[in-house]
């Protein structure tokens, strides 16, 4: 019995969302798959393999019965190869792996940063689809060019806010500064975050001041994706992020001393974030 089937999927299209940021849509091809299809939940990730180059984890951007999309930034050899992919090419994936955001009623604040925004976009769609209250959304990036999915977010909620580090559009500042402003004006029951870990960490500290529970998607070096290589283990609890994350609750994060501070590199050596 195979525990985690690998699926060879066909590339339907690839589009450049912003400079060096791409989204690839894949189609399930029944004859090519060990399983027919799956539907991933917001926050989950897949391992994508480019043969001869390598394999990396990517968070899922969109998932329906017939297709699956993921967004990535051109940053290393695997993403360099992915950026050159053409429709009809084949890619092999494993997954979906990991934990998902848990949907809850009330006043939700969603915060996405840079190219880590896809899980937040998927969550916003899921909340709408399942009839939850309209959330408040913060979308933040270095410059306006990197504010992804603005039009979609605008349609998903009337409470959509943008922030750019350089002030090239909307609020001049980072996601945490904008969040701080919003928290002085509004009350929220829950905060969902996906972004660079430093941003997520400071957003978490801010939420803690107000006693608002968070769910945060973390990223770590993941080699196997299935809980055995130990690359993504968080200290001191020994939490295995690829299996018990990537989405973690405030309750869990409070016990993780590494959060926002330390991670393990390719060799397993500890580095500062």
């Amino acid at each position: 019995m195979i525990k985690y089937p690998r699926m060879t999927m066909t590339v339907v299209n690839i589009r450049e969302e912003a400079n060096d940021i791409f989204t690839i849509e894949l189609a399930f091809v029944n004859s090519n798959c060990d399983i027919k299809y799956f539907i991933a939940k917001p926050g989950q990730f897949i391992m994508v393999q480019v043969f001869g180059v390598g394999e990396k984890p990517f968070s899922i951007f969109h998932s329906v019965e017939t297709s699956l999309s993921f967004t990535f930034k051109r940053i290393g050899s695997v993403t360099e190869a992915l950026a050159k992919i053409k429709p009809h090419d084949l890619l092999t994936i494993r997954g979906p792996y990991g934990t998902e955001y848990t949907l809850s009623h009330g006043r939700n604040l969603l915060i996405g940063g840079g190219y880590a925004t896809p899980p937040i976009r998927m969550l916003a769609y899921e909340l709408k689809k399942q009839g939850f209250e309209e959330p408040t959304i913060i979308n933040a990036a270095r410059t306006q060019e990197y504010l992804l999915y603005s039009q979609e977010f605008n349609k998903l909620t009337n409470a959509y806010h943008e922030a750019t580090d350089d002030g090239s559009r909307a609020y001049h500042g980072n996601a945490v500064e904008l969040m701080r402003d919003l928290l002085t004006q509004e009350k929220f029951d829950k905060i969902y975050i996906s972004g660079p870990e430093k941003m997520a960490y400071f957003a978490f500290l801010e939420a803690e001041k107000y006693g608002i529970p968070c769910e945060i998607s973390l990223e770590r070096y993941m080699k196997c994706g299935v809980g055995i290589c130990g690359s993504c283990v968080l200290d001191p609890t020994g939490l295995i992020l690829c299996q018990e994350g990537p989405v973690l609750s405030s309750e869990t994060l409070r016990n993780i001393e590494d959060f926002g501070k330390l991670l393990r590199n390719k060799t397993g050596s500890i580095e500062k974030i």
Binding site: M1, I2, K3, Y4, R6, M47, Q49, G54, E55, K56, K223, C224, V226, I228, C229, S231, R264, K266, T267, G268, S269, I270
Partner: peptide, 20 residues
């Protein structure tokens, strides 16, 4: 990666002695 490949009876792995 990929450093593991599953088959019906187990795994093949080629981690390559990763260590700090």
């Amino acid at each position: 990666s990929p450093i593991i490949a599953e088959f019906d009876g187990g795994l093949t792995n080629s981690v390559g002695l990763t260590n700090p």
